[in-house]
Design a protein around this nucleic acid. Structure first.
Length: 566
RNA sequence: GCGUCCGUAGCUCAACUGGAUAGAGCGUCGGCCUCCGGAGCCGAAGGUUGUGGGUUCGAGCCCCGCCGGACGCACCA
């Protein structure tokens, strides 16, 4: 099923051919910002007028005269040469009926499915996940859901940081500072503690620093004991991550960690040297790209170790070779932009095909407008943050709806609390540094998850009052302004979903859902459903049915659940 | 110093990739509950889009210069 925009664009192309303008390039028909300008508009006449040196208004007039739109609505020329479209109630009713019968709500699968690897979350072993990981995790998951929904073959891969110089200190700490009981009760905290203490000790005592280095070297050479300790650290940490991913409802197809690529690193560096892309500089092996930066891309350190640049190249090769990836998207914070520019630039020079994207995002700030920290100045652990979200939601739900059973309240609180955190990320443009506020994200008013979830619940409660289960029947006749407005908004859904990937901006889906919920409330206010006469009631029930399914689907694409009551 | 990102209502944020009179929420002020969940709806006030130029039918968006902020710049990831 073509989207409304696509239908209008096709009709435009037909009209252009009719007046002898064959290939006008890509035409756009978009929803208008102001209802006085109709429902959709195109600036095709102005764009083409410039190209063909014709007056935009008269060209627009000729286009309109040749537009065949009787089944859709009407078109008119306006302003400097816009063509405005108004959709007829018949057309809206017809489309709505189609959506009612379509599980995918009008969203077609792409005709060109691609294999897309999405790399996100990527926490580090022996460190707790903190607020810095939430954006990557939530954004990556939402993009994966949407990309998959559009029919692409998506592979999600959690590239866990399980290798690196910190392990010298962790192993030293494990051997000298570990407290077994702590490891049982809260393993990740204990790993953090021994790392910190070893780090402090190493700074004060160069003998300890040297010992840490030796532990690292032993690990890298495959020493049995160190290898075993490392594996324990990895296992314990991954268990901790899994609890958080469960709570968030995020899953990965793969969790191939950095160490997975270790065996490939010498070959990677050697090949780059042999092919002339890498050279030795100050004892390190580096790749220069002066056009990008005066700083080199270091693929082997002067001590022989391999930094993550080397791992990233090996990872890239693996994804291209093994998975036949046509696109690889990295959902990683903005500070690493240079790294990815260097990586992608090298990949292109090596002749690697594929759509490589660094999907960058801004930071989360506290209410003081500075990077979000705990009172003691550390980054906020994600587990604690999510627990607090659920706790706060529990209090709100208990107050607003005391009639829920204990079990319902627990389930709803989790959906609301986790949804609020996710939505506050996703409703914002990904590049903005945004201010974390419990009160705002859990507010029942405004562009928040609880507001949307409540709109869903309100709508669903209508269906609970029906004597028999609802099923959409025949035709739909819409007359009221509020009905028509809601219908028009609903029909934009397929265009919006695909637009999200154009710039990787889930926030436009979020904003759309919010706008639609606002239209629903207007409709709900002025158009009684259950008490309406049968034909009207049927049409309104269909509107409600599509609205609730669409809201649920849209939120699911964002990784957010909806409760039936709250 | 070089590079990247950002600057929009008192506050928090949008603006469908260059479209028409820049939109929401919070806060402020004023209306609406014999009616499906008022967790809602309707209305008012609030702006020289940091600033100065440029490009064109048309700029919050593109280009150049300033001002202010965040981040990154050789062996951490």
């Amino acid at each position: 099923m073509a989207t409304v925009s696509e239908i209008l664009q096709e009709r435009l192309q037909d009209a252009l051919r009719a007046i002898g303008i064959g290939n006008g390039g890509l035409l756009q028909a978009t929803p208008t910002a102001d209802p006085r300008h109709g429902d959709y508009q195109t600036n095709a006449a102005m764009v083409l007028g410039k190209k063909l040196k014709q007056k935009p208004r008269s060209l627009a007039g000729r286009i309109v005269a040749h537009l065949s739109l009787s089944d859709i609505g009407i078109a008119e020329v306006a302003g400097p040469g816009f063509i405005n479209f108004r959709l007829s109630p018949d057309f809206l009713g017809h489309r709505l009926h189609e959506l009612a019968l379509d599980e995918r709500l009008g969203v077609e699968r792409t005709e060109n499915p691609k294999t897309v690897v999405i790399d996100f979350s990527s926490p580090n072993i022996a460190k707790p996940m903190h607020v810095g990981h939430i954006r990557s995790t939530v954004l990556g998951d939402a993009l994966a859901n949407i990309t998959r929904f559009l029919g692409h073959h998506v592979i999600t891969d959690n590239h866990i940081g399980d290798w690196g110089t910190q392990f010298g200190k962790i192993i030293f700490g494990w051997k000298h500072l570990l407290i077994a009981e702590n490891l049982d009760s809260d393993p990740v905290s204990e790993l953090v503690r021994i790392y910190r203490e070893a780090d402090t000790a190493a700074k004060k005592d160069s003998a300890i620093l040297e010992e840490c280095r030796q532990e690292l070297v032993k690990l890298q050479r495959g020493d049995n004991e160190n290898r075993r300790i490392w594996q324990r650290c990895v296992d314990l940490s991954i268990e901790g991550f899994a609890k958080i991913y469960d709570l968030l409802g995020v899953r990965f197809d793969y969790q191939l960690s950095e160490s997975f690529y270790n065996p490939e690193l010498p070959r990677v560096v050697q090949e780059l040297q042999e092919r002339g892309f890498a050279e030795v500089s100050d004892g390190a092996v580096v790749v220069w790209d002066r056009a990008l930066s005066e700083d080199p891309f270091i693929i082997r350190k002067s001590d022989g170790g391999y930094p993550y640049a080397a791992t990233d190249i090996a990872t890239l090769q693996y994804r291209l070779d093994r998975w036949r990836a046509e696109a690889i998207w990295y959902v990683v914070g903005a500070p690493q932009q240079l790294h990815f520019q260097q990586l992608f630039s090298l990949a292109r020079r090596l002749g690697y095909q594929g759509d490589l994207q660094h999907i960058a995002f801004g930071s989360i700030l506290g209410e003081d407008h500075k990077l979000m920290r705990t009172r003691s100045g550390e980054s906020v652990p994600l587990q604690a943050l999510l627990d607090e979200a659920v706790l706060r939601a529990t209090a709100i739900v208990a107050e607003k709806n005391p009639e829920l059973s204990e079990q319902e309240r627990r389930s709803v609180s989790r959906i609301v609390g986790i949804g609020a955190v996710k939505y506050s990320e996703l409703s914002q443009h990904r590049m903005t540094d945004y201010i974390f506020s419990w009160d705002k994200m859990l507010s029942l008013q405004g562009n928040t998850a609880p507001y949307l979830q409540n709109a869903y619940v309100r709508c669903r409660s209508i269906f609970r009052k029906l004597p028999i289960p609802f099923s959409a029947t025949i035709s739909i006749i819409l007359r009221e302004q509020a009905e028509l407005r809601l219908a028009k908004k609903i029909l934009q859904f397929p265009d919006i979903v695909s637009a999200v990937l154009d710039g990787f901006k889930p926030n436009i889906l979020a904003t759309y859902l919010y706008d639609m919920a606002a239209e629903f409330h207007g409709f709900y206010e002025s158009c009684p459903v259950l008490s309406a006469e049968p034909a009207v009631r049927e049409a309104r029930l269909i509107l409600c049915d599509i609205f609730s399914r669409l809201l649920r689907t849209g939120l699911h694409l964002l990784g957010i659940q909806v409760p039936e009551k709250m």
